[in-house]
Design a protein around this nucleic acid. Structure first.
Lengths: 293, 293
DNA sequence: AGAAGTATATAACCAAAAGTTATATCGAAA
DNA sequence: TTTCGATATAACTTTTGGTTATATACTTCT
């Protein structure tokens, strides 16, 4: 009997029109995918794909199987979701980045917890980097993680939540303080203060700079337990923080400026193991699925 | 993601009401089944089965999943069948027992081959025992086998075709020749001639005797390349042959007698690999599925 | 109550399946 | 032709599913 995994592999391959591309999407190597597709064809006793040097296209049998497979997979997805209401996860461990822990996450939690029958015990764990949170998920020390700039994982599901821009923070005395808004180009010509690796802001900042072909001028690198703010306030240089965190800055020695042109932003996603899809759904919408029977 | 196999395992377990019983039906060990069921529960994030010392019963979630699973599995079965019309099996290797090779199988073949578009090349292979045929299936030297007294296999599908009685053959001079019909009890008190192991007739004959608590009196054991008939004709003893073969006996020195009470019979089945279900369907019904598109 | 009989769970181990990297092959386009 | 993008194959490793042996727990029978 063929496996569901093979069917998913096949579906993706058809949709991408290429074993190569599909293997990337599926987070497996191209030979692994080739092998599974061959096995599926053997199991069904038919040829499903015509292999060309430009990619693959389905045979008549392939088209037929694809159509049926899509329906089945859709049904299964549905069942998985439905099963969520019987979930035995009575306590939830949620991980988050520090910047989301103050406002965003608590507001979600409120809606979630106040619903009747949601008697789950919820533990919130804060970690400085996306990487750390993913590792905790992998170790099953977490069920759900709120992370940034996430680009997929072989075993977890994810849902993009929102984007937000980074803001520049500078000392009040700084010449750029005169301007209403700044551009990214202006910002990176200044002396920058950033945290050392691993650091999500730093990673995406460097990616952004590389993309624009500019080399930033980092003059100070802090450990994660040190706050950027005092160094900026003291005039060592300028730095970047997410909009959310920017809103909370009270320090009168620091100016917060929006970056207008070539905006530099982060994407927030929620990542979770497959069987928790329905719990995440509830968390995000505040809806409680009806229990039947 | 859970696998289809796990779903099949779960379905069987529910239907049998016992992991133990289901494991026998599925041809796997009880711990293997236990493990897969546990994994399925983990994958779905729910408890599906209540384990008792009398067996298992489904939880609310289990009942729900069972219902959905049945539908999905039915659909998949359907798809497998449908895929058969694209099958790349253009030549078929069919194995059979000698007793079926003369009349029964050729009559099937005629109907099959004469259908238009059935241009398959068909090879018939004759082997003396069911065991040999199953081994050839396992080695993929055959696609389909016609066997007797078959009781399931972990990887092949099968379909019972018909039953037929064994007849007694005796020398014309034999005292029992007077009677119209014989009983099994009468037969086994006589001196018996049988083929040596492995031999399907012998195996089921001994099982039947054991079941009735009688010990047969075997006075002569032949190799498979030797025919029973001359020995019976010469009066060494009596023997048993299937009805089909009995009908073909011309020898005037041999009498064929039906066994009336405690009838002793064999079950003929066709065994085949999963993806050939639709071909077997065609073979047995003479119908040719319509090709679409 | 104690013993026997079922049923499921766990442990240790083994074989088969699925994954990986490195490399070959093949056709299309430059 | 050469290069590039795509699939196939080979050799190897890891993971999964399977096996036997054994433990544990609940009925049932004497």
């Amino acid at each position: 009997m063929f496996s569901l995994q093979q069917v998913i592999y096949f579906k993706t391959t058809i949709e991408k029109g290429s074993i190569n591309k599909a293997s990337k999407e599926l987070f497996v190597s191209q030979p692994a995918l080739t092998k599974q597709l061959t096995r599926l064809e053997q199991d069904l006793g038919t040829c499903l794909l015509i292999r060309k040097s430009t990619g693959v296209e389905p045979t008549e049998a392939g088209i037929y199987f694809y159509q049926r497979a899509c329906i089945i997979l859709e049904e299964i997805k549905q069942i998985m979701k439905e099963m969520g209401r019987f979930s035995f996860y009575s306590s939830l461990r949620i991980g988050t980045l520090p910047s989301l822990a103050n406002d965003y996450l608590p507001s979600l939690m409120d809606r979630f917890i106040n619903k009747p029958k949601n008697t789950e015990e919820i533990n919130i764990l804060i970690r400085d980097t996306t990487q750390e949170l993913i590792t905790l998920l992998e170790d099953r020390a977490l069920e759900i993680a709120f992370v940034q700039d996430y680009d997929g994982h072989p075993i977890f599901k994810s849902l993009p939540l929102f984007q937000e821009q980074y803001f520049a923070i500078l000392p009040t005395s700084h010449p750029l303080g005169q301007k209403q808004n700044l551009s990214f180009a202006e910002v990176i010509q200044e002396k920058m203060i950033l945290h050392k690796e691993p650091c999500d802001i730093r990673t995406s900042f460097q990616k952004h700079c590389y993309h624009l072909g500019i080399k930033p001028n980092i003059i100070l690198e802090l450990n994660f337990n040190e706050s950027l703010l005092p160094f900026v306030a003291e005039g060592y240089g300028i730095s970047l923080i997410p909009e959310m965190s920017a809103k909370n800055i009270q320090d009168t020695k620091i100016l917060v400026k929006k970056i207008d042109h070539q905006p530099f932003y982060r994407k927030i996603s929620v990542v979770f193991s497959e069987q928790l899809e329905s719990v995440v759904f509830r968390l995000l919408t505040g809806q409680h699925p009806i229990k039947h029977g």
